[in-house]
Nucleic acid binder design. Structure first.
Lengths: 191, 191
DNA sequence: TTATGGTGCAAGTAACCACTTGCAAGGATG
DNA sequence: CATCCTTGCAAGTGGTTACTTGCACCATAA
């Protein structure tokens, strides 16, 4: 799909966007990091924006969540842990940084739908799952919308914090966080 | 502190940063929106960066959470609802958009500490509160770090989604979300 | 060998950036 | 009235941006 030179350019571009954002990343920066002459960039891609479009077509830079990836058994804790694992395996701090770095007026139309689709998909999965669990009388609430949004926020918030502050806000690692947040989510915290 | 012209410039700058981010906001944009000549900006402020510094000194553009703002009674649900209300009254979608728009390499040193202090403060409040509740045997868990991070993420995630997608991801409004997310957080969802 | 395609290099484009300057108009203050 | 002070206006600064072009080099393949 892309040759060696193109891949060097793609990788250089995305790693710079993670660090500085799209607008602040110049084609000179990209050329330097890709160890390529600047004019080569424009021989390989129509323009700066085209590099982003090309990169977004690769799964490496575009975490596409699919509903089929989320499987469940009927055990609330087990299922929600598994959901979180799938979500957090795709929505990594790196991906969050990219989606933040891509926030630019002239990329908005290009990226908006793709970015929104990720929480949309996860929420859809959660709503469907909670409805099913409710039918099986495994839930003590009928406010499924809130449940889904809260669980989604709990997961996204964690990865956002990791992306923004590394381990400075909390040293909890993904696996421990999933286990305990899901356990608390299901069992509650009060006695 | 600032005269009329300076305030017009400050408001124009921050509203543009909400929309386009710092790097993509030009002084020409600012002048136009502030209905001021571009050179007036540089008569009133040393440079573009100084405008941000000035704005950040105003509470209107810089949500400073204080630990004293968080009061509690000992009733888990009531207290956590009140915590969320305080947090979400300061950390609005507008504020989130600003902190995202301020992510720029040449502003990093300037903004990083201020931005990180908000989740830091809220987490500190939560940890202290949960420890107290644990001493009173009102918690069924001793994993306070996870609890605090999860509750923080649940709140931040919500306002981030509102900032990014408006009502498109969920039509839940802040008040309803607080009530039900806190209730579920305390009581759990499984039966 | 010859031809071809990819690349580096140097130079240059027009547009845009933050920022500056000199001057004149106007409003408030003495 | 005389004096500031603020602002608009027009023009311009040097630097940077995305993007271009012409030429030489070189490895590969016919």
């Amino acid at each position: 799909m892309f040759d060696g030179t193109q891949n060097k350019i793609l990788n250089a571009t995305m790693s710079l966007i993670i660090e500085k954002g799209y607008t602040a990343t110049t084609t000179k920066d990209i050329a330097k990091r890709a160890e390529v002459n600047e004019c080569t960039i424009f021989r390989k891609f129509k323009g700066k924006k085209e590099i982003i479009i090309a990169a977004m077509s690769l799964p490496e830079w575009n975490p596409c969540l699919r509903e089929e990836d989320f499987k469940y058994t009927g055990d609330l804790i087990k299922d929600l842990c598994s959901f979180s694992e799938v979500y957090l395996r795709k929505v990594t701090p790196k991906m969050v940084k990219i989606s933040l770095g891509l926030r630019s007026p002239d990329l908005y139309d290009l990226t908006k739908d793709g970015i929104k689709e990720i929480p949309d998909t996860f929420k859809r999965v959660l709503v469907r799952y909670f409805k099913k669990m409710q039918e099986l009388h495994k839930l003590q609430t009928d406010d499924i919308e809130s449940l889904a949004v809260a669980f989604l926020a709990m997961n996204f918030g964690f990865v956002f914090f990791k992306a923004s502050f590394g381990d400075e806000l909390t040293e909890l690692q993904t696996k421990e966080y999933i286990d305990s947040s899901v356990r608390h989510f299901v069992n509650g915290i009060g006695r």
